[in-house]
Structure formats: C-alpha cells, structure tokens
Design a protein around this nucleic acid. Sequence first.
DNA 1: GCAAATTAATGATTTATTCAAG
DNA 2: CTTGAATAAATCATTAATTTGC
Lengths: 232, 232
Amino acid sequence: MENKNVDAVASGGTPVSSRWNPTKEQISMLENLYMQGIRTPSAEQIQQITTGLRAFGQIEGKNVFYWFQNHKARQRQKQKQENMASANRFHNKSIPTTTPHPCTNVVCSPYYMSHGGVVGFYQPTQYPKVLLPGGAKRRPAMDKVEKTKVEAGGDGNEGIMINSDNITCDHETLTLFPLHPTGILESGRSSDSFRTTSSMAEATINTTVAEEGCAEQPLIDFFGEEASCEDE
Amino acid sequence: MENKNVDAVASGGTPVSSRWNPTKEQISMLENLYMQGIRTPSAEQIQQITTGLRAFGQIEGKNVFYWFQNHKARQRQKQKQENMASANRFHNKSIPTTTPHPCTNVVCSPYYMSHGGVVGFYQPTQYPKVLLPGGAKRRPAMDKVEKTKVEAGGDGNEGIMINSDNITCDHETLTLFPLHPTGILESGRSSDSFRTTSSMAEATINTTVAEEGCAEQPLIDFFGEEASCEDE
DNA sequence: GCAAATTAATGATTTATTCAAG
DNA sequence: CTTGAATAAATCATTAATTTGC
C-alpha cells in the first residue's frame, strides 16, 4: 500500500499509467515548496525540483509545472469560496448560481518568508491574504522606466525576483527545500532575459521523439530538403 | 528598408532583442500552416516547424507554440467581433459594453485541404466557418484509444491527427509546407501518449541553463545531496 | 528629414475553465 | 469526487508603426 505508483513501464515496455501519480513524499515536498512561497517556479526551479523528486518515483518537469498551476488555482478558488461564504454569513443574501463578479482581486499568499532562510516543515496556520485595490497592476516590474534605453546604467541588481504573483522575497537566498540545512545554495543571477515560467513552451518533446535517431523524425519536414535530421 | 530585423546579436555580443522578431518569410510560412488547418501543433510538429523556419532566422520552439496560440486566439476574437458587428447591424440594438455571451461556439476554420496535398501559396478568399452545435466536445482526437498500450499493435494509422479543435484531416499525408513538391513525408506514428501541445510544460530550460556544465546549475538543489549535475 | 512621443501589433505569461483518469 | 492534464481567455510587456514637433 505504500508504493502507490508502480513504475508503469516495467517489463512489457508499455506504459500502463497515462498520467503521473505522485508519491506521498512528492506531494509532501511539493506542498512544502508551495508553502515556502513558490507559486510559479521558473524553468530552472522546475528542473531542480523534478530532478530532486525523481528520487521518489517517476516524474517529469511538466508534472511539477502542472502541479503548481493546479495547486495555486485550487487554493485560490478554495480561498475565494471561503471568502464568499464568510461574506455571505454577514450579508445573508442568497448567492446567485452564476457569480456575477466576485471580487477577483484576491490573491493567495504573498507569504513573507522568515528572514533567516531555512524554514523547514513548519506549517503556518493561515496565509495572509491581501486585497489589491482596484488599480494595482500585477507585475510591478519596470513600470515605465524609460524603455528606449533600459541599460543606461541602473543598478544591476534585479536578481532572481522569483516572479510569482507577488512574492516578496527580498533576499536572494531562497532555500527551497531545506531538508538538510546544509544546502546553502546561492541563487545566482539567471543572467538572461528569462525570468518567468518560460519553462513551458520550450517545445522540447525530448520525451516523445528524439528517441531513436533519424528514423522517427520525418513527420512534417515541410521543406522537402534533404532532411538532415541533425538539427544543429 | 527591406531587412527589417537586424540580427540583433551582431557584434557587441549583447542580445538587444528580448523577444522573437519573426521574419517576413517565417510569418508567411506560419500563416500558411495555419491556413492549412494547423491550430495547435503537436510537440513533434512544433519541432519540425521550428527546425524548418530556423533557416530564415533565429527561432525557438516556444515561439512557434506562442505564435499559434496567439494567432488562433486573435483570429477567433476578430471573428467574434465581426459576427457581433453584423448581428448588430441587423438588430440595431445598442451593444452592452459587457458582452453577455456572444456565441462562443464559432471556430475559425476547419479548412479541408485539397485532396492532392500540395497546396502551396494560394490564398483562399474566405475561410469556411462552422458553427458547432451545442454539444460538441472540444477534443475529438483520440477519444479513448487505450492509452495504456499505445503501441500494442493496432492499426498503426493514428498518424498525425493534428488534434486541433476540430480539424478534420482524414488523410495521413499532410503536406505542411510544400515549397518543393518533392516532400512526400509519411506522417509516421507518434507512438506515445503525447498528442496535444504538451510541448509546453516540458520544462526544458535548455536555453537558459544547461549552457555551461555544472557551474550554472545549483539554484535550488534542495536535497543537499551531492548535486551530481548529471540528471540521468 | 530626424528623433522623441504615442499608438498599434503582437510576442510572452498568467489565470480560468474544462476534460478525463483514478 | 479528487486532481492531473490541456486549452482558451485575459493580461502584460516589448517592439514596430505612426505621428508630431522641430
């Protein structure tokens, strides 16, 4: 009963599970990461998380990605329902089945981390919720700072920024999963224009194709040139 | 005047363009593909298209993915506006600023290809639009074709299926971009459970990291184990 | 004619919704 | 019913068109 997800690609070579079945440990760790404030992990983070969690069972990057997406969304809607319910308790009006515009400004959890870094497994009872007032944009980054010449010479301190909705991690050492407190990772600068979850859309398919050399490739090949199978 | 997008990574070494700037040829080809019915290319297709279009300039898989997403969405909303406008001309009622539910069932263009295959650059004047009746599901592709044992040995004829919303490409040889009519590609079996745009969420980051061996990796490393940098 | 300012297009992300497996 | 997976809608942000003042 422990080993919930059988490896699924066992003997026959045919995968018997079409979708990821997370292990207890995996879920626990993902939840922990979420608790630490990670809502939309960057590509690198996804990669790291995946690599880490792979020790506990079959997992891919997209699983991590989807997990965060879904968890965030569902936590939010749960929150929203709770909010609506409590508001309803106050006003005692019947909720119309088609919710008109139930204040969509509520975000889930900025979740200020404790200053030190290592947070571990502690469970906060409640996430601080913030109601953005009407005119609050979602991404405070670079509002209109002279677009034409951005690199004029400002502080080169944009750092990692984690980019989630409004995570305010103002220190650069984000200990994502300090099981061992020895992990002193220094989240260096990503040194690229990527910052958000461009983990998706990288179109890598390295799971599907790119398995057996050239023989599996020619699906489109619309140029009709001598399909050189060697991408680059 | 002609060469609109300069290479942008020319001499200085600093990339001055943060986002993809498609070439005229690239756009033309993408539009052509779209016209042929491709709306949500599969991972393999994205890969192929990207490889093909790379001959005309810097391009990545995610660019292709995003292009199709955006183009589809914007074609759709353009259609919707047109429909709304014409309906408005009939009824002569003031449009409420918040459109109630203006028949969202309209899809853009199934676009039956000509039987031969080679279509080339010809431009149809108008796309045949179809109105799905109410109960049309969104994903007709591979309704329940036993994912658990994909390669069991059934008819290896699932082909590419294009999987868009309701593209009805019932023949397997979809010449995507027959500049040279010599491209007789046989759309082989994809042989995996992937079919839709799982091109996203693959979390590959091979653009951002994975550039300089091990030194760039340790961002998360949450397990604190001897970060072996070799994923597998 | 040209560069700064403004607007329009559109590439890139995030969020919401939906489908279906377990 | 829960939740992984996928897609569509909404939104943000950057680049090209364009206008405008000189």
